[in-house]
Nucleic acid binder design. Structure first.
Length: 221
DNA sequence: CGTTCGATGCACT
DNA sequence: GTGCATCGAACGT
């Protein structure tokens, strides 16, 4: 049984954290420090699995365990938005670590990244899937999925932002603030797998997608 | 099961 | 004007 101090996501059978429990308790909030992001991107990507992404809008809190990510690293990575060099859109990638990079994709989906590595080194980790924790009722309303199972709410990067209420207004947000951040928690997760990144036509030689094996919240079967 | 395809906005060349 | 770090419905086996 998963107690309050030993939550688990996609780990062992029957060890799911109860929905609706408050992930943020007054005075006990621990946010990942700047130095967490100021490291090699693949390491950050790997260690983000099992951490908790939180968005607060007024008193409405939505959160979920990160279970799938992708790394985009430098101008030499053809799939990274920094590949053409600095532009208006990719400016956050060149900024300091621990900030968000949100952009509009295919004209209708917002995708959220966390910027990594030192300022001037363009790199980020895309959040592709969460196992919902708090605010699942809010997520259902935002997704328009009142009947669906919880593991569908934040499956896929476009669905993550829709369920979490993240949009372009969250671009270049300091993740060490109190609006959008990643909690420094150690949620028990299953084995970690690595694969090529999804939905790109270049840079497919790099296996820079990390995910929790067997987790039903992970996209792209 | 599988694959295809339309929606939809805008940064970039 | 072109091309997306997508999603889900609609088709074909």
């Amino acid at each position: 049984s998963a107690g309050r101090d030993s939550p688990s996501a996609c780990g062992r059978a029957g060890a799911h954290a109860p929905a609706g429990r408050h992930a943020v308790t007054a005075g006990a909030r621990r946010v990942l420090p700047r130095r967490f992001y100021d490291r090699p991107t693949l390491l950050v990507a790997r260690q983000l699995l099992g951490k908790v992404l939180v968005h607060r809008r007024g008193r409405t809190v939505t959160s979920g365990v990160i279970v799938e990510v992708e790394a985009y690293i430098g101008e030499s990575d053809p799939a990274c938005h920094a590949a053409p060099g600095p532009t208006r859109r990719n400016r956050p990638l060149y900024g300091p670590p621990g900030f968000s990079y949100v952009y509009l994709n295919y004209g209708m989906h917002h995708l959220v990244n966390v910027v990594t590595e030192a300022e001037g080194e363009p790199a980020a980790v895309l959040i592709r899937a969460l196992e919902p924790l708090d605010g699942t009722a809010t997520m259902r309303r935002r997704r328009g999925l009142e009947e669906a199972t919880v593991d569908r709410l934040c499956r896929g990067p476009g669905n993550v932002t829709k369920a979490m209420g993240i949009s372009l207004t969250h671009n270049e947000t300091d993740l060490l603030g109190d609006r959008l951040y990643v909690e420094d928690r150690r949620i028990a997760i299953g084995r970690i797998g690595w694969s090529t990144r999804i939905g790109i036509s270049v840079g497919t030689d790099r296996r820079w997608r990390a995910y929790v094996v067997g987790c039903s919240s992970v996209s792209g079967r």
